[in-house]
Design a binder for these strands. Sequence first.
DNA 1: TTGACAAATAGGTATTAATCCTATTTAATA
DNA 2: TATTAAATAGGATTAATACCTATTTGTCAA
Lengths: 150, 150
Amino acid sequence: MDRFTQLCKNHGLKITPQRAAVYAALKNSKEHPSADQIHKQLLHSFPNISLDTVNRTLITFARIQIIDVVEGQGDPRRFDPNREDHHHFYCLSCNTIFDFHDPDLEQLPLPEEITRTCTITGKRLCLTGYCEDCRQHKQKHQPINFCKPY
Amino acid sequence: MDRFTQLCKNHGLKITPQRAAVYAALKNSKEHPSADQIHKQLLHSFPNISLDTVNRTLITFARIQIIDVVEGQGDPRRFDPNREDHHHFYCLSCNTIFDFHDPDLEQLPLPEEITRTCTITGKRLCLTGYCEDCRQHKQKHQPINFCKPY
DNA sequence: TTGACAAATAGGTATTAATCCTATTTAATA
DNA sequence: TATTAAATAGGATTAATACCTATTTGTCAA
Ligand SMILES: [Mn+2]
Ligand SMILES: [Mn+2]
Ligand SMILES: [Zn+2]
Ligand SMILES: [Zn+2]
């Protein structure tokens, strides 16, 4: 029994070809695709698959915590196959999201004011800026400001 | 000349009553409101102000870096009047965004792999979970997962 | 293996955020 | 006060996402 079958069984989800395809498409993705991108990709192998099914399936996967939703700035929701502890650099010019790891940050204790009063379920450092490829072209775009330059 | 007038002049923006109102409404807000929320609030004093004007104005302010856009998970874009270095706790149940500060984090150097290759313009730690008021009611909602529980 | 049934899907519709369009108004400047 | 470019209102459009429902399909137990 493969990993996907196992996960579905554990959560009482039926194993359908569409679900398996969505799972495989996202897990094989190195980017952080939107529902629409996954849908377009799957149309080749499933000419009738609906966007609703793709979106619903991704949200189902996120709810049972086998994938993540990526934080963004008001643009279409994007998904993350990578559930390891990691952080994101978001390029304001080409919209690519790069993963990176930071063991020091993992270790950093959070302010007591938060940990005492709230239940924390997620933690991520979000960097924004311009990736290597886009640095030079920075002035061509005028992205909406995300947060203060640091 | 007040602060708002100064900022507009510096950036060649005309000083209009609508702009001043949007600026004041956001700057006085302790929350992280959406364009729609600001618009609804301003309708009391400006019965004809359009949502487009409010949204456009907020985006203009973000571009000239006098306000920020808040990272989210695919929901309506929200704005932040607070441009100090700070971080966010996002309640998955009531959608409130709480500010917090963390001097240790400010000091933490970023991975060299990122700083070498990219231009970083923003840095923010994004925590998700359930706020003090919502902890008990956690099971009532089934929010889309943001990222791995840590 | 088959039948019953709940779950999932396709495809259409509705909703909502955000943007675009354009005639009109208005702030800035001389 | 007249000129002019910028800004606005309000309607239209687009795009993401959610909703609705008839039909199909996976699951499970007989
Ligand atoms: Mn990632
Ligand atoms: Mn804030
Ligand atoms: Zn880039
Ligand atoms: Zn809450």
